[in-house]
Design a protein around this nucleic acid. Structure first.
Lengths: 247, 247
DNA sequence: CATCCGATTTGATATGGATCAATCTTTTCG
DNA sequence: CGAAAAGATTGATCCATATCAAATCGGATG
């Protein structure tokens, strides 16, 4: 592993509070690898042998069934992924492929498990990570059950703008067909919905998204802290009324 | 809390391996309550003050947005729920209501957190629980993205039959409109799909489901260990080929 | 056991979104 | 730079599923 990567990894939620000794032991057990774009890292059903940490590039977690496929998540650096498969030593539920050239640190689950037994703080960190992962997936399922494709797109665009820190404009971080897949629709439908959104003040210039009036749209679209990932403080503080209309 | 309930609770994945002292301390902090049917236990957005353990009855976790609502999970005894909201001290992402008369043990998150700091085994257990919860929600999201309503229903029926231990017949554990909501469709659609499934050898007698040829259907329907909850050993042992066609 | 009310089913219709096909754009690479 | 490939858009059509309305069914209750 390269030394300039260490600080960022050390600062991951997964490792932040743990003992230096634990961290060093873990890092000593890792392999670091550079992967070309579009490379399959593992497939759903494979035994989860490694905890992965994405240091550079980006990775798609996707799933396939009977010839259909859908992107479940896109990972960006620096973050760990598929922790949940490593803990119970179960097979991966999703496949992974690099989206672009990526550098990935791989930690054998054996070593993770050993460290877990030794450093309670690590267990705590893993716990938090899993809790947040779970909540993220709940959000995704809620989106799929309660919103139409159009609504999911608007919500995603607004959330993404917030994450990027620019409420007015940002560049799509992946191809439109992948966004479509992530949102659970076809590329054709996505294209049409984008067209329809012009009237709402959302315009496209290639892969650049321009949002005319973020605040108004967030209101109209029903952006919701319980359903959308609204940034770092998301769902912690509660500046909204928890029971609208209850008082 | 009633004493005859203790053994079942002690045996929860969440508490199984922990120290007796931890368990006793935790139990001493709990409130036990009996709730009538259809009672709201909490609503999404509420601060997560309690870890819940369902001892008797059944509970629906559901979610609402703009007048639409969907059931995300149905909990049956004995099991803990909404652990994931307690860990990071975040608001509930789902609302809960009793489906029938239910007895619920409530453990203040404060006490849970104290115990977590004292007993590493508890942290381990929570970790496992969260990992499995996450995987369950991934399965649900995969279902929604990759399958049609018809396919989701078939998969659910077959899985349910396995869980109940009778591959041939079982009784629906809740009303059809709730099943529809859980599967992400309207009651009308569910009814029509059931009708269409007669030709596949699935018949309905009131709330009794009869499956003519489970094995054949499981094959035809593409029941999949990576997507369906196939029972206790689900996704652990690997009696299937991880890469169909790879050798 | 008759009544009532909610759950379910059935029917008719509307619509979101998929599919298939063709064209246009952008990127890649010799 | 220019051809080829891949991605995106547009158009036409089809299908799954929602919606709205009405008719049954079935269980709870007095």
């Amino acid at each position: 592993m390269r030394n300039d990567e260490k600080p960022a990894i050390r600062d991951l939620p997964l490792f932040r509070g743990i003992m230096d000794e634990t961290f060093d032991t873990l890092m000593a057990a890792t392999y670091s690898q550079e992967f070309p774009p579009q490379l399959d890292l593992f497939r759903q059903g494979d035994r989860a042998d490694f905890l992965h940490i994405l240091v550079e590039g980006s990775v798609q977690l996707h799933t396939e069934w009977r010839g259909r496929e859908a992107i479940m998540a896109v990972i960006r650096p620096v973050s760990s992924f598929i922790v949940a498969a490593c803990i119970p030593d179960a097979p991966y539920l999703m496949s992974a492929r690099t989206q672009e050239r990526s550098r990935i640190i791989m930690l054998p689950t054996v070593d993770l498990r050993t460290a877990l037994g030794r450093d309670p703080a690590l267990a705590g960190a893993v716990m938090s990570h899993l809790a947040m992962s779970f909540r993220g997936m709940v959000r995704q399922a809620k989106n799929l059950k309660l919103r139409t494709g159009r609504e999911r797109l608007i919500a995603w665009l607004l959330s993404q703008a917030r994450r990027e820190g620019n409420l007015h404009t940002f560049t799509l971080p992946f191809e439109k067909r992948h966004l479509a897949s992530y949102l659970g629709m076809t590329p054709e439908s996505l294209s049409r919905v984008f067209n329809a959104l012009k009237s709402e003040g959302i315009t496209l210039d290639g892969s650049r998204v321009i949002i005319a009036d973020h605040a108004r749209l967030a209101e109209v679209a029903g952006l919701d802290a319980m359903m959308d990932d609204l940034g770092p403080d998301n769902g912690r503080a509660e500046p909204w009324s928890p029971h609208p209309g209850s008082w």
